[in-house]
Amino acid sequence: MKRVQFSSPLLPYLFLAPQLAVIVIFFYWPSVRAIQSSFYLEDPFGFGSTFVGFDNYLGVLLSPEYLSIARFTAIFTATVTFFSLALGLLLAVKADAVIRGNAAYKTLLISVYAIAPPVAGLIGMMFFDQHIGPFVKIAAFLGWDMKVGLSYFDTAFAMIFVAVWKQIPYNFIFFLSGLQALPASVREAAAIDCRSGIKRFWTVIFPLLAPTAFFLLIINVTYALFDTFGVIDVMVKDKAANNPITLVYKVYMDGFRGNDIGGSSAQSVILMIVVFVLTVLQFRFIERRIHYT
């Protein structure tokens, strides 16, 4: 680590101040506000609020609707994370085999994919458009009458598909750079020691890629929980009643549509705790097995 000497002991804090301000204003302050309002029952028309203790939490946790949304969120998150990681890795391994040693190819692939995620998201949505979506047409051809936004299962399928589709490029880039950064001689030593390419992948290459995979796991879980909001919003188009939604969308629905600030705040506090616990668990049980080079 490089040590830098500042002429005044206050100077480093001054440099950090803008960053700290951003974190405090946009992260800690809202969190504190959410915790605060989760203990109050807010008048929907803005005429004051009443302290209700843990009532909001109990109301949330005892609601069967909330629990079923929580269940869907768990399935959704696990599925999206698994498929976007697996497919990103698969594509990266295939691309790596092609571009090994060819720098021009690499830059091209990475720059194309770097601008792609928003575009990919848009294309993904269009796949399932009721009128022009090719996926809907193909499904119809196979006898599956897809009704995204109307049928619970079809909507869930489309949501997961688009969420995975959007995230693959991101995972692809990280896995590809991870693969490219592996020392060539270690792979060659493995090629001499082990005939089976698949076995080589799981015994040498994947363990060396584990730091990247772990980082992506955390990013992808967070993505599936929070950043899929836009996808869900477009799919359910405010008609959440019979459609699958995730916990984050429920927070938004209750808070901004239902004007139940207290309940919504309680939900977001619960979400915060869930994410915190999840991250701690991942670090505790997975990170320990990772070998950082």
Binding site: P183, E188, I192, D193, P207, L208
Partner: peptide
């Protein structure tokens, strides 16, 4: 013939040990 089937062993300049 694949490297693994040539019945040779190689020692590399940077050792190429499996770090994990």
């Amino acid at each position: 013939v694949e490297p693994a089937d040539r019945d040779i062993a190689m020692v590399f300049q940077n050792y190429a040990l499996y770090p994990h």
